[in-house]
Design a protein around this nucleic acid. Structure first.
Lengths: 249, 249
DNA sequence: GTCGGCTTGTAACAGTCCGTAACGGGATCC
DNA sequence: GGATCCCGTTACGGACTGTTACAAGCCGAC
């Protein structure tokens, strides 16, 4: 049970009293030593339920992470792009299937091997933890999008998030690449493909975006889109206007 | 930045080469030494944006965790009951507001103090990590509920989950206590209060549940409810029937 | 260059869920 | 013990999304 923990030094004895000039050891250094596996578009990297034996770093391409419900519905939990990692937040077995959207190259890193490295990877633990917490943050964001936002808001939020991922500044015309299909977007946003199309068409009619082919969208009015999306990313903490309720109700 | 990590030994030097007869140190032992704070129903324990200075363990009562969107909508991220912990999965600042549903007693544990204890709490790290991963699992479940399930399915899943929390076996009449209001349930499930009422009434009409007052529900036909909920909790891994797609589309 | 298939876009229709409103009931407060 | 307030419930009309069907565009193969 406990031996299946993800973070390498979770169950290993790792003294590190000497934290002098830490060498610039990064996750990329570890991954760099691994061979790069190739996957064709549509090919699976791992499947839900498989033993989560290793974590992966994407060198190139885009992946979709999804679960299939018993009745056949597909819930896409997220997308991953070059430079991002997979499988960190899975305990024991992978909790979703990872499938290549575009041709993908990625490097695997055995969790057992990582654990065996012991103290050498000790300084990486904060980084790994940070990635785990980033996943929690993203999941909570996703919960709010699915639970509180309408179709147009969800789509706008998806576009704004994609723009943010590119690191583009707030300049007006931001061009984003969306390698996934409309069906993928729909399964990610909890909508149907028709609704996604409708909303995108409406956004185009309203002059908020421009559609260049199927996989490229130009965000013409970021501020409008952000407003549509709810802008709850950088929401300031609400005023503690607290009124004690009564109980029982 | 990195100094604000939650897990105590994340950034501290903790040698623990001697893992002999580990004492039966549990989280409860640490919390037991803390005084129990009291909160009236409706009172806030901490607010979104506050510095996540400590983690809490509920001694008695029920809490709701929520975020307020800029337009006033309230998204309840979850409920916590006696014996459960709060604030573990928050990085730096609390990412939601915790508010007492019923009168609550809980014990706080300063994160700084926990970190200062160093190697003494070292064997607790797997437990803490396990709790974090449990939160990720719950969040992913929540994502699927909100993204893929209809109103009736969501409600059924909520009831089944509540029943599972009590640890009751699969016997027919399972009685669950729901201290939160209908509005709370609605904000948790991404529905309106009226829809929640309608669905509960329908479940009652169909003979699946019995409503005893406002905060007690008897689940008469668990199997039917589980089927309604999708039963994707213990979903078997889908068959890897994989067909390579083409790209670009 | 042309053909074929898949994905995507558009429209009409149906269903679900939401929003308002009014009523009923339980709990608290005095 | 009674009045009051809040919560819960139900009904109805409307907006939004899902469903179905069909046309158009893009891509790859031959």
């Amino acid at each position: 049970m406990y031996s299946s923990h993800l973070l390498p030094s979770a169950g290993s004895a790792v003294p590190s009293v000497f934290d002098g000039p830490t060498e610039p050891l990064t996750l990329d250094c570890l991954f760099a030593g691994q061979p790069a596996d190739k996957f064709a578009a549509g090919e699976g990297v791992f499947w839900e339920g498989d033993t989560a034996s290793d974590i992966c770093q994407i060198v190139e391409g885009c992946l979709r992470l999804y679960r299939i419900l018993p009745d056949g519905r597909r819930a896409i939990m997220g997308f991953r792009f070059a430079g991002e990692t997979l499988g960190l937040s899975c305990e024991g077995t992978y909790c979703y299937t990872a499938e290549a959207v575009t041709p993908v190259r990625l490097r695997r890193l055995s969790r057992a091997r990582l654990r065996a490295m012991g103290e050498e990877v000790r300084p990486l633990q904060p980084l790994l933890l940070a990635k785990v917490f980033e996943e929690i943050r993203a999941a909570r964001q996703h919960i709010i999008v699915l639970g509180q936002l309408g179709a147009e808001e969800r789509t706008a939020h998806f576009l704004v998030s994609a723009a943010r991922r590119t690191g583009a500044d707030r300049r007006r015309p931001v061009t984003i690449e969306l390698p996934m299909t409309r069906q993928d977007i729909a399964d990610y946003l909890g909508l149907t493909i028709e609704t996604v199309c409708r909303v995108l068409s409406k956004l185009k009619r309203d002059g908020l975006v421009a559609l260049e082919g199927r996989h490229r969208i130009v965000l013409l009015r970021m501020t409008n889109l952000q407003h549509l999306a709810g802008e709850f990313d950088d929401a300031e903490p609400q005023a503690p206007t607290w009124t004690p309720a009564k109980w029982p109700h």
